[in-house]
């Protein structure tokens, strides 16, 4: 464990807490893409299947349980409890266009052609594009609530910090995992225009408005 990975995990944790608070406090999931949340739930359930078979540390297990449970809770809140506030009209990104290529890629490029490994690889590739429906929805609605932009910022920051973690591990532990690194870079790059808008607008107290 190093400071970059810990900061990344905490940023990820914070993002999920912000999202749950936003939905719970405002009793609304307006502006949130349910499709992205479905993809995230898929990411965590396919990646953390080794939760019961491969104990790494208490921290690791607790975080896995947290991510799986909160992603499912978010879907419950969006599609059941606050279903009336879910914005169907703007959450229209075809997730089949993501799942099919990611599945094919997971079957073709992986470390080991075993079920657990292919599912882990699928999860890594899927996570890198899972935010697209959300970013697409923000671009369609033209703006996002400030709390939603904080959620997106923390979520994007988490994998950006993981990149520093991988650089650190490469130089100090002689460790690298190209699949995780390439997917992590793609994932972070997808946030770049959002990061720019967040820093130039939200930080200055303005609302996140996308150029029409």
């Amino acid at each position: 464990m190093n400071v970059f990975r810990l900061a990344g995990d905490l940023s990820h944790l914070l993002a999920i807490i912000i999202l749950l608070l936003k939905i719970w406090k405002t009793r609304s999931c307006a502006g949130i893409s349910g499709r992205s949340q479905i993809l995230f739930a898929l990411v965590y359930t396919t990646r953390y299947l080794d939760l019961f078979t491969n104990f790494i540390s208490l921290y690791n297990s607790v975080m896995k349980v947290f991510f799986i449970s909160t992603s499912c809770a978010t879907i419950y809140l969006m599609y059941v409890k606050f279903k009336a506030t879910y914005d169907h009209n703007h959450d229209t990104f075809r997730i089949g266009f993501l799942l099919i290529p990611v599945t094919i890629l997971g079957l073709l490029i992986n470390h080991d052609f075993t079920p657990l490994e292919v599912l882990w690889t699928f999860s890594i590739y899927l996570e890198s594009v899972a935010i697209l429906p959300q970013l697409f929805m923000v671009s369609k609605t033209g703006d996002a609530e400030t709390i939603t932009s904080h959620y997106l910022f923390c979520l994007g920051l988490y994998r950006a910090l993981y990149i520093f973690n991988w650089i650190y591990r490469y130089y100090f532990e002689g460790f690298y995992d190209l699949i995780a690194i390439v997917a992590g870079v793609v994932q972070t790059v997808l946030y770049c225009d959002f990061f720019y808008l967040y820093v130039t607008r939200v930080i200055k107290g303005k609302a996140l408005k996308l150029p029409a």
Binding site: R5, D9, H12, D50, N54, I56, S57, N60, M63, K64, F67, H111, E117, W120, Y162, N165, W166, Y170, G174, F175, Y176, D177, L178, A180
Partner: peptide, 10 residues
């Protein structure tokens, strides 16, 4: 350098 799997990462 051995390419390993980041299974200790979340």
């Amino acid at each position: 350098l051995v390419e390993q799997k980041s299974k200790d990462e979340l």
